[in-house]
Deep mutational scan, measured.
Amino acid sequence: MSGIALSRLAQERKAWRKDHPFGFVAVPTKNPDGTMNLMNWECAIPGKKGTPWEGGLFKLRMLFKDDYPSSPPKCKFEPPLFHPNVYPSGTVCLSILEEDKDWRPAITIKQILLGIQELLNEPNIQDPAQAEAYTIYCQNRVEYEKRVRAQAKKFAPS
């Protein structure tokens, strides 16, 4: 494992614990031996107030490669969400998460999670990743928002 990646992720964890947006979660997972795995984080993004996503808490896994922060983490909703920019596998399609697009090593975990929260309610229809959600979003916004509200209710924190 890269010392650069681990040191950056340790800084990220410290900064997150000191200050993070209300309702968001970002925690490194534990290895079988109980030690912390900084390369694999369990996160959760709350649906934004005043949107059909409100009330939901959407679980996301963030996986970092050894060359982080040169390369972005892979962000994957578990379980996958109904959304035009979420692949059926759950992987998020967002330009700041793509090395050859808008990724920059200075982007923080907090910025990534806030960017994904923004994307939930403002899909990028130029870059669809899920045919069904994309089609319904474009053709029947009322039905799309109904499905999103049902999903938010399903993923409401207990």
Results as ranks from 00 to 15, higher is better:
I4T: 01
A10G: 06
E12Q: 09
A15P: 01
W16R: 02
W16D: 02
D19V: 07
V25L: 08
A26V: 03
V27A: 04
P28S: 05
N31C: 10
N31R: 07
P32S: 14
T35P: 04
N37D: 14
N37R: 13
L38H: 01
L38I: 09
N40S: 13
C43R: 01
I45F: 07
K48E: 07
K49N: 14
T51S: 12
T51R: 00
P52D: 09
E54G: 12
E54V: 08
G55N: 08
G56S: 02
M62R: 00
M62V: 11
L63F: 12
F64I: 12
K65N: 15
K65R: 15
D67Y: 05
D67T: 10
D67N: 09
Y68R: 08
P69R: 03
P72C: 12
P73S: 05
P73Q: 03
P73L: 03
C75N: 04
C75T: 02
K76N: 15
K76D: 15
K76S: 15
F77L: 05
E78G: 13
P79Y: 15
P80S: 06
L81T: 04
F82R: 00
F82S: 02
H83L: 04
Y87C: 03
P88H: 14
P88S: 14
P88L: 14
S89L: 07
G90R: 03
V92N: 01
I96L: 12
L97S: 07
D100G: 08
W103C: 01
W103F: 11
R104G: 04
P105E: 12
P105S: 11
P105V: 07
A106V: 11
A106Y: 02
I107F: 11
T108Y: 15
T108I: 14
T108L: 15
I109V: 12
K110T: 04
K110L: 05
Q111H: 10
L113S: 07
L113P: 01
L114K: 09
L114G: 12
L114F: 10
L114T: 12
G115V: 00
E118G: 10
E118P: 05
E118Y: 09
E118V: 12
L120H: 01
L120D: 00
N121I: 09
N121S: 10
N121G: 05
N121F: 03
E122Q: 12
P123T: 01
N124D: 01
N124H: 07
I125W: 08
Q126C: 14
Q126L: 10
Q126R: 13
Q126A: 10
D127G: 06
P128S: 12
P128L: 01
A131V: 13
E132S: 06
A133V: 05
T135M: 10
I136V: 06
I136Q: 11
Y137C: 04
C138R: 11
N140S: 06
N140D: 14
R141S: 06
V142P: 14
E143I: 06
E143G: 06
Y144T: 00
E145G: 04
K146E: 12
R147G: 03
R147S: 14
R147N: 04
V148I: 14
R149Q: 13
R149G: 04
Q151S: 04
K153E: 13
K154R: 13
P157L: 06
S158A: 13
